[in-house]
Design a protein around this nucleic acid. Structure first.
Lengths: 337, 337
DNA sequence: TTGTACGCGTTATCAT
DNA sequence: ATGATAACGCGTACAA
């Protein structure tokens, strides 16, 4: 302990045992004399010794780092995910590293491989839409990196997946709109290639089918999950005659765009148009009027995902499926006569 | 290279040189035969060799990790910072680890120390408000960890600081309001203990003084940088008689709250009330009406900060002061007669 | 200009 | 149950 931290050698010397014994104490080896353990633990406490993560990483060929790999997702969502992961990691020796990826780059797969090979992370959480790519998961597996995929529907076995049931959630959200008396309901879809978009659209269709309603293609507009695309889609939808009395947007950003578009043409929400979003990001609460939306339990999923990533074989299982719920605010009312 | 990555030894063997020579090539040592270098580089390329960061970290007692340390900041801001940092780090061997801290926890300082001691980061970016704490900077220095402090005014020497000039920025924003004809201008202040709050308030007072106007204490309300606090403060301000014709809120979240409050009592923005925010987060563009605000160049600051953190002595200096600018949207107009 | 020997702090192997 | 010794992959004295 000449300078800086005490090392395992210092502990071993002071405790009068070998390095390996100290290592066993740290790693909770079952085969250890109780007195030895107590003795070593005392010295550890007294010295304030903490194992050096770099040395461990080298010896174990595995870092005490958990990665968040995402591409292009919504900023609010990414922040919530980070919050959840850090909650799941709190009190452990793991840290979180964040790695955005450019899905459009031809080198995306190579970038990820390079990252994983070099950093030797303990595990990674894959966010949608990249989590939906089986090749990416296969790459993680090939490189011996644990992973958990987050999605709008289960993407893998329970140990490697956290998911919501977006289809069911949207189904009941749109059912709520129908209960309120809406019959002409517009849909702003998600971008192609997003599983969440597919699931949410299916939920929309389910609800209409449940009520014996047909899906009017003229009331379905494509979106890209951005505010601007929501605004644009809403303008198209609001041009239809007769106008839809309600619009379900596949995420809150687009729903905010819908509210914006309605205001722009002097339509009052919800009097002239009811709006429902999805995600329950802060955007939803801060829109005017506050947006009725479906809560996507992203913090809970991320927390569970982190725990799955660092779980030891004996740890209790974390849930893999998380319930969504309709958050009723003020953007929905009975349609005007 | 029996399994997995090739190591420095594999390169040395294949190139017919010693480890150390390879090491010199990697680290760009000046004293090296050109042929040797070319030869080694060829083998490196052929093998696809990349140095193992864990081993380097152990030997160098320093990680190729750059940390983002923040507490309690706005989610949008944190995301922008991450984006900027990752841009600054792109193409380098550095990764970003994110570390939130709870400023209210009594153990905050100990937590940070523990984190820095263990992880041996190459450097950390400190976000406000924690960046304003000199004790935190001193702690980094003591532990031999490079740091850069981000702030609303320079907090350290140019090599360790990235800053905007919020005072000047707000001064000209409020001057713009006065030019439009506003005389009763409300202020929603930032929370106590935030340098940004102080600076922005000073800028507000500057502008009023420039125009020969007095600061009416009844038109100043405290805020906590949250949407809810902005809404609350706006309600208080809008109760004043006569009503203010404009409100400057010290950040966009609170300004969104102001718009919300105005709508709630049937006031049109900007006809009945002009609103200006600060930060230029997505919130501002998505409010209705779109919010006139001051752009806080957070991405640029973060990018520069990252470059400062990983700069070698010969690298060109990154700027330390970043200009803000008023972003004019639709929440400001001439006051109604 | 290049190579040898060793240290960084930990875990793993194989003894006892 | 515990210990000696060898990895792990790279950097640095110091020597050549």
């Amino acid at each position: 302990m000449r300078s800086g931290q005490p090392t395992i050698n210092d502990v071993a010397r002071l405790a009068g045992v070998s390095k390996k014994t100290v290592s066993r104490v740290i790693n909770r080896s079952p085969l250890l004399g109780p007195d030895t353990r107590a003795q070593v633990e005392a010295v550890i406490g007294q010295l304030g010794y903490v194992p050096n993560p770099q040395a461990r990483a080298l010896a174990l060929r595995r870092n005490f780092l958990v990665g968040l790999v995402h591409d292009n997702a919504n900023a609010q969502t990414v922040m919530s995910v980070q919050r959840g992961m850090l909650e799941g990691l709190r009190g452990t020796e793991f840290e979180m590293v964040v790695r955005p990826l450019d899905r459009d780059a031809a080198t995306m797969s190579a970038d990820l491989r390079h990252f994983l090979e070099r950093q030797r992370l303990h595990g990674v959480l894959l966010l949608p839409p990249i989590s939906e790519d089986d090749a990416v998961a296969a790459l993680c597996a090939e490189l011996g990196c644990r992973y958990v995929r987050m999605g709008s529907a289960p993407l893998d076995d329970a140990a490697r997946s956290v998911a919501s049931d977006d289809r069911a959630a949207v189904r009941s959200a749109v059912a709520f709109l129908i209960e309120q008396g809406h019959r002409r309901i517009g849909l702003i879809a998600g971008p192609p290639g997003f599983r969440s978009g597919t699931e949410r659209r299916l939920g929309f269709e389910d609800a209409l089918a449940d009520a014996g309603l047909a899906v009017a293609e003229e009331l379905v507009a494509p979106g890209r999950y951005t505010f601007a695309s929501g605004l644009e889609a809403a303008e198209r939808l609001l041009d239809r005659v007769p106008r839809p009395t309600a619009i379900f947007a596949c995420n809150d950003e687009m729903a905010a765009g819908v509210i914006h578009a309605a205001h722009d043409r002097g339509l009052a929400v919800p009097r002239d148009l009811s709006v429902v979003g999805f995600d329950d990001t802060p955007t939803a609460a801060q829109a005017w009027p506050p947006l009725t939306t479906v809560r996507w339990p992203v913090v809970d999923m991320a927390r569970a995902a982190a725990r799955k990533l660092i779980a030891t074989p004996d740890a209790p299982d974390e849930p893999a499926l998380f319930p969504s719920a309709l958050v009723q605010r003020r953007s929905v009312s009975i349609p005007a006569a």
